[in-house]
Write a protein that binds this DNA or RNA. Structure first.
Length: 267
DNA sequence: TAACCTGTTCACGC
DNA sequence: GGCGTGAACAGGTT
């Protein structure tokens, strides 16, 4: 479920497995859907090149080669990576594969083909063109608060807007608002300064804590409302960490939204 | 079986 | 242009 912490974990996985490796081939089983560029063009640039560095903003990942090309990766809703030896079968749904000269391969796992790969000349320009805001862990309170002031949409919808802040996905938005004790449907522009600061701090805490456990949800503290969704800790399913409030599920901006009727009252 | 779903984009309508 | 809604993408899971 790639939100920022998963993509950061993938970035570290590429650093540990694939940096310094010479690429001899790249394959893609559905180039028209999955690639931003022509498959031949990507192969021309990558064959013989070496992965040298990585860079991530929000959910957007880039890998630089020794030829100064940047390979762009986006994981959509279900993307994943798997590094495997040529003697092993590739992971299921590894629809794109980087073949290295050391006999190992990096598979880009795309169960639903929502993932994207391409070559970009300049990551910063690419992100600017897409309107991607600064990363959650980089954005300043001033810039963040300024966006909130201008947005009349529900605060949850605004947190999911990658042009406001990059990297927050559906469950993280819920946990940020739970920790900040803000109702998800409050218009962003109606928030008080102290509430905005609570959101800012909660945002950094939730994201950093999730990165620290390499996005393994079972290792997250019990006071995350994510567990109420029933993802892996059965004894916490449907319960607010506060022990008293009722967990409510609604739809905000078309997305399933979990919150506590007691901790996050609308006032 | 049918309904559901993590991200993103786009097409509408107001 | 802002905002909300819904569809589309494709397959796994429940």
């Amino acid at each position: 479920m790639p939100e920022l912490p998963e993509v950061e974990t993938y970035r570290r996985y590429i650093e540990a497995s694939s940096l310094g490796q010479t690429i001899e081939q790249f394959t893609c089983e559905d180039p028209r859907k999955l690639l931003l560029n022509d498959l031949d063009e990507i192969n021309n640039r990558l064959n013989g090149a070496v992965f040298e560095a990585t860079y991530r903003v929000g959910k957007h990942l880039f890998v630089r080669t020794n030829l100064d090309d940047w390979l762009y990766m986006h994981f959509g809703m279900t993307g994943d990576l798997g590094y495997f030896h040529r003697d092993e079968p590739p992971p299921r749904h590894a629809r794109m594969i980087f073949y290295f000269t050391n006999g190992y391969r990096l598979g880009f796992i795309c169960p639903r083909k929502f993932e994207r790969v391409g070559l970009v000349a300049d990551p910063a320009a690419f992100l600017a063109q897409k309107g991607v805001a600064p990363d959650v862990m980089e954005i300043t309170p001033t810039v963040f608060f300024d966006h909130l002031r201008r947005k009349k949409s529900a605060i949850k919808t605004v947190l999911l807007d990658q042009s406001v802040v990059a990297g927050i996905g559906n469950w993280i938005a819920d946990d940020v608002l739970f920790r900040a004790k803000i109702h998800p449907e409050i218009p962003a522009s109606a928030l008080e300064e102290t509430e905005k600061m609570r959101i800012f701090e909660a945002m950094r805490y939730i994201v950093q804590t999730t990165i620290d456990v390499e996005a393994n949800y079972l290792l997250l503290p019990d006071d995350f409302i994510l567990h109420a969704r029933g993802w892996g800790k059965p004894h916490l399913a449907g319960k607010c960490p506060c022990g008293k409030g009722e967990i409510l599920m609604s739809r905000v901006g078309g997305r399933a939204t979990y919150f506590c009727g007691l901790c996050q009252s609308k006032k």
